[in-house]
C-alpha cells in the first residue's frame, strides 16, 4: 500500500501539494495519512475527496483515509458533513462522523452536486441560513443573501453544465487573524469531470491552434465568457460571479487541468494566471469573501 501524507493544513493554498503527491499513483491501493491534519477548509475537503475519487477511478481500489483520532478537527469535519461524502470515496476505514444537531454555525455543509435538484437544495438551504452569517459576521447588507445565493447557484451549475461528472460544494466562515485580521467566507466547489479545456475543446481548439491548452481554455471562459454552447445567453455565469465577488472585494480562482486563473484584490497574492501545474481533472473553484471593514459599513 502506498501512503500519501496529507499536509497538516489543507486549504486552497496547499491542496496542490496533495495533488502532486498523488499524481503518479495509478495502480495500487493508497492510504491518505491525515492523522496530523490540524486545519482544513472547504477547498481542502473537496480537494481531498477529488484526489481520492480520481485515484479510485484510476486504480479500481477505494483509497483509505486515516484521520486524527478525536479532537476538534474531527467534530468540525462531522459538522461539515464530511463523513457522508467521504464514505462514497474512501473505504470503510473512515471513522463514523455523525453530523451533530444544530449545526447553525455552518454556512453550507459539503453537498454533492449531481443534478438540477441539488442546486435548488443548495440555494434553499443557504437562503434560509445565510442571512445572519452574511449580515452579522461579514457585515454585508441584507440584499447580499440573494446575491450570494445567485453566486452559489451559478457556480454549482458550472459543474452540471460543463463537468459532466459529479462534484461538491461547501462554504464556511473563518477568522483569518494573521492574514487579514477579519472574518472571511470560503466557498469551495470542485468536480473531477472534463475540465474547462475538455468542455471548450470541440468549439475553440482550432481557433487557438497551437496556443490551445488549459490556460487558454480558462482565459477563454473566465475572461471572455466563451462557452461551447452556441446560444448567446450562455457563458455569463462566471462573468457575473466575478463581477459580484469584485464588488465585495473578494477573490476567485479556478484551477483546471494544469492551469489556474484568478481574479484577486490587493489582500491576496495569487498570480492572475499559472500554467504548468500538475495535471488534475475537472475544475476546482475557490471564492473568498472578506468581511466588510467598519468604515465600509454605511
Amino acid at each position: 500500500m502506498r501512503v500519501i501524507p496529507v499536509p497538516t493544513s489543507l486549504d486552497y493554498r496547499t491542496i496542490d501539494r496533495l495533488i502532486e503527491a498523488a499524481v503518479d499513483l495509478a495502480d495500487s491501493k493508497v492510504l491518505f495519512d491525515a492523522h496530523r491534519l490540524r486545519w482544513i477548509d472547504p477547498v481542502g475537503m473537496i480537494g481531498l475527496l477529488s484526489v481520492g475519487k480520481v485515484l479510485a477511478d484510476r486504480s479500481g481500489f477505494l483509497p483509505s483515509l486515516k484521520l486524527p483520532e478525536g479532537g476538534e478537527l474531527l467534530s468540525y469535519l462531522a459538522r461539515m458533513g464530511f463523513g457522508e461524502a467521504a464514505r462514497e470515496v474512501f473505504d470503510g476505514g473512515v471513522p463514523i462522523l455523525r453530523r451533530t444537531g444544530g449545526s447553525s454555525d455552518v454556512m453550507l455543509e459539503l453537498t454533492p452536486v449531481q443534478q438540477n435538484q441539488d442546486v435548488h437544495e443548495v440555494v434553499e438551504r443557504v437562503h434560509d441560513r445565510a442571512g445572519a452569517i452574511l449580515s452579522r459576521t461579514l457585515r454585508y447588507p441584507p440584499a447580499a443573501v440573494v446575491q450570494f445565493s445567485v453566486i452559489l447557484s451559478e457556480v454549482c451549475q458550472n459543474i452540471l453544465e460543463h463537468a459532466e461528472a459529479p462534484g461538491w460544494v461547501a462554504a464556511q466562515t473563518y477568522f483569518w487573524k494573521k492574514r487579514l485580521g477579519r472574518e472571511v467566507l470560503v466557498i469551495g466547489v470542485g468536480d473531477v469531470g472534463r475540465g474547462f479545456r475538455g468542455s471548450l475543446e470541440g468549439e475553440y481548439s482550432g481557433r487557438f491552434a497551437d496556443r490551445w491548452g488549459d490556460a487558454t481554455a480558462l482565459e477563454a471562459a473566465f475572461i471572455h465568457g466563451l462557452t461551447r454552447f452556441p446560444d448567446q445567453g450562455r457563458g455569463q455565469g462566471i462573468q457575473q460571479i466575478r463581477k459580484q465577488v469584485r464588488r465585495w472585494d473578494g477573490a476567485i480562482s479556478i484551477r483546471s487541468g494544469t492551469a489556474q486563473i484568478a481574479d484577486v484584490p490587493d489582500w491576496e497574492d495569487l498570480p492572475p494566471l499559472e500554467d504548468g501545474l500538475v495535471p488534475f481533472p475537472g475544475a476546482q473553484i475557490t471564492i473568498i469573501l472578506p468581511a466588510r471593514l467598519e468604515e465600509e459599513v454605511e
Binding site: N116, V119, H120
Partner: peptide, 12 residues
C-alpha cells in the same frame, strides 16, 4: 416541482 421556490437553474 412544488418543492422549488426559487427561479434558479436553466432546466427550471
Amino acid at each position: 416541482a412544488n418543492l422549488y421556490s426559487h427561479l434558479v437553474t436553466r432546466p427550471t
